[in-house]
Each structure stands twice: as C-alpha cells, then as structure tokens.
Amino acid sequence: MPWMLPTIWKNLFSRPVTRRYPFKDIREPFSGYRGKLHFDMEKCNLCSACAQLCPSNAIVVDKEAKTLKYNPFACIYCATCVEACPRKAITMDTHYSPPATVKSEETCRP
C-alpha cells in the first residue's frame, strides 16, 4: 500500500495528538461550560431554595446547625441551583471536579 507511506512517515516524526492527562492539563473548556460549584457563604442566607430544587439531592441545608452540605459526587452539574438562588450566591466555573479517591462532602458555613 504505497499511498499510506507518507502518512506513516509523518506519524513517525510528529508529536502525539493526545494529551498526557492528568500530567498535563486538558484543553481549555468553552466559556459556557458548567463546571465546579462555588458557594459564596457571605451572600447565602440558608433559604434552602437550592436544596429543594436540586434533582439529585446533592445539597442539604441544615438551618439549626447553620450549615450547607454539598456532595460533588452526587451533583449532576445541571445548574438548577445557580438559576434558583435568589441572592446569586452560587456560581460555576469552567473546570470540572478533579477525580478523587474518597467521596467526600463539602460543608459550608456562613
């Protein structure tokens, strides 16, 4: 198959097209990507609108203990909470949560 030779020759000397994740970062996500959640507890008043609407019950608000517990492993990153928050206390960045060995919850306090 002589017509394959240029491709083989090119592939022999070119750099790999894949990225060595997790040693090197992946390409920059698009600006609208729904990534990690951040809770601004200075703005939050524990109204629990986010917890009521969350489709996967990833957010639990305890008004007595004044805590907001967020489970990033249950979260489906649908951004319903971001849209529901009346105080705009929840934001999303454009990077997804890194893989982890332990499924831990985040506890936020005002």
């Binding site: 609208g32 729904r34 489906i76 649908c78």
Partner: peptide, 10 residues
C-alpha cells in the same frame, strides 16, 4: 460550546 456539556446537556 452551545449547551455547556458534551452529551447530557440538561
């Protein structure tokens, strides 16, 4: 780019 996620778009 348009929906925010690649497959399960929500």
């Amino acid at each position: 780019m348009t929906a925010g996620h690649r497959i399960i778009q929500s």
